[in-house]
Structures are given as C-alpha cells and as structure tokens.
Amino acid sequence: MMTHATYVALSYGAAVVLIGGLVLMTLLDGRARKRDLAELEAQGIRRRSSAAQEPGQDQADT
C-alpha cells in the first residue's frame, strides 16, 4: 500500500523529470536552430530583420 509521503515524493519526482526533459529539449532545439541559421547565412541567405534599410524607406515598405 502506498503512503501519502510516497505518493507525494513520486509526484514531485515525475514533475522534476518532465520539466527537466522539456528544458533539455528546448536547449537542444535552440542549438539546432542556431546551427541551421549559421548554415543558411554561410550560403548567403540572410534574415529579413538583419537587412539594412535604405534612407527614406518606411518600415511598412519592407
């Protein structure tokens, strides 16, 4: 029979494992996206947000 303390400890343990997994997945995905961006920029493909605006050009014109 499971005691209350065991149930609480298992619940907290499961929460820690799940949140840790989500953090790890987020970090790994961020690294992968940075690698993808670096590859694209090495090919000469630039992000629109990094393009220099010409003088007199409104933000709405882009």
Rank of each mutant, 00 (worst) to 15 (best):
A42I: 05
G21W: 02
R47V: 03
T6K: 11
A32G: 06
A42T: 11
P55L: 08
G30F: 06
S49Q: 11
T6L: 14
D61A: 15
L22G: 08
V17P: 00
G44I: 00
M25R: 12
Y7Q: 15
G21L: 13
A38D: 07
D61I: 00
V23K: 02
Y7R: 12
L37T: 04
L40P: 00
Q57W: 02
T62A: 05
L18H: 06
A60S: 15
I19A: 12
D58A: 15
L10K: 06
S11N: 12
S49A: 15
A52I: 04
P55M: 07
S50Q: 09
V23D: 00
G20T: 07
Q43I: 07
V16M: 07
I19G: 03
Q43L: 14
A14H: 05
A9K: 12
G56F: 01
Y12D: 13
Y7T: 07
T26P: 00
G56T: 01
T26R: 04
M25D: 14
R33A: 05
M1L: 11
D61Y: 05
E39C: 08
L40A: 12
V8L: 14
L37G: 00
L27C: 07
Q59L: 15
R48Y: 08
T62V: 10
E54F: 03
K34C: 02
G21H: 05
D58W: 06
A14E: 12
D36P: 02
L10A: 13
R46C: 01
L37V: 04
T62M: 10
E54Y: 03
A60C: 04
D36N: 07
V16K: 10
R46S: 04
M25F: 08
L40D: 06
V17A: 15
A9P: 00
R46L: 13
L40E: 09
A52W: 04
G56V: 02
L40T: 03
Q53V: 07
D36V: 10
R46G: 03
K34S: 10
R47D: 11
G30A: 10
R48M: 11
L18T: 13
S50D: 14
D36Y: 05
Q43R: 14
S50M: 08
M2H: 02
R35D: 01
R35N: 00
Y12S: 13
Q57L: 10
L27D: 02
P55H: 05
G20H: 06
V16L: 13
Q53D: 05
A51L: 14
I19E: 07
D29G: 10
V8F: 09
A32D: 11
Q59V: 14
T62D: 15
T6E: 15
D36M: 14
S11W: 05
V23G: 01
E54I: 02
L40C: 05
A38V: 01
L28D: 04
A14G: 15
G56K: 02
H4S: 13
L40F: 04
M1P: 00
M2R: 13
G13E: 06
A32W: 08
A42V: 01
I19P: 00
R48G: 12
G21E: 07
Q59H: 06
Q59Y: 07
G13R: 00
L18C: 11
L18N: 04
A15K: 09
M2V: 12
E54N: 05
T6D: 15
R33S: 11
D61Q: 15
V16E: 05
